[in-house]
Amino acid sequence: MEALGINLPFFLVQVVNLIIMYVVVAKWIVGPISGLLEKRRATIAQGLEDAREAADARANAEKEAEKILAEAQAKAASLVREATERAEAAGRDVKAAAEAEAGKAREKAMAEVEDERSRILSDLRGQVAALSIAATQKLVGDALDDKRQHALVDEFFSGVKAGKVVIMEGAGVTGQSAEVTSALPLTDAEQATVKKDVLAKSGAAAVTFRVDPSILGGLVIRVGDKVLDGSVAGKLEGLRANLR
């Protein structure tokens, strides 16, 4: 021990010195530094907390902005839709009005055309009657009185004899609606006569008149699903069949 230099007084001095140093270090180095570390840690934690809060706030703001944006977009979309609808409605209205206008104009034009045609055909009928009478007079040489001739021609064209529709005599057809086709337009008086007679005989509710020059003369009356052919063309056809 002597050679190693270990002796009790030195050893005790060192132990006491170490304990003193422990107190010094613990009180004036470790204490302040751990306080400092604690403070720093707290500051860092505070900083992190602040950062987190800031991030939260930013996220909230972003959400808010998103919401506002979505609202604005929805509003814009609804506005656009409304405008589109209104425009479409307006367009429809305009179109409908235009179509109605056009339809009316067309109808008017058609009616005018019809009237014109009827008028022309009426004129034609007078001339045809006069021509045929003249031709007959030439042919027969005999002069029927003028009134009788006209009545004959009228009968030919209208198929109406003494206030009765010829083909309806004893036909006994009934139906809901009747359609009368004549080669030339009937006069109002004839129409009224035909109408009255057809209505009375067939029990139909309404009568419509058509003009078809191809039947040459007489009347074709369709009641329900039956057709009574009193036309000249039909008679000619029947005659052609008999002659053959």
Partner: peptide, 12 residues
């Protein structure tokens, strides 16, 4: 470099 010191430290 003194054994007293190191021994004191070790014992404590």
């Amino acid at each position: 470099t003194d054994l007293n010191f190191t021994f004191a430290l070790a014992v404590v």
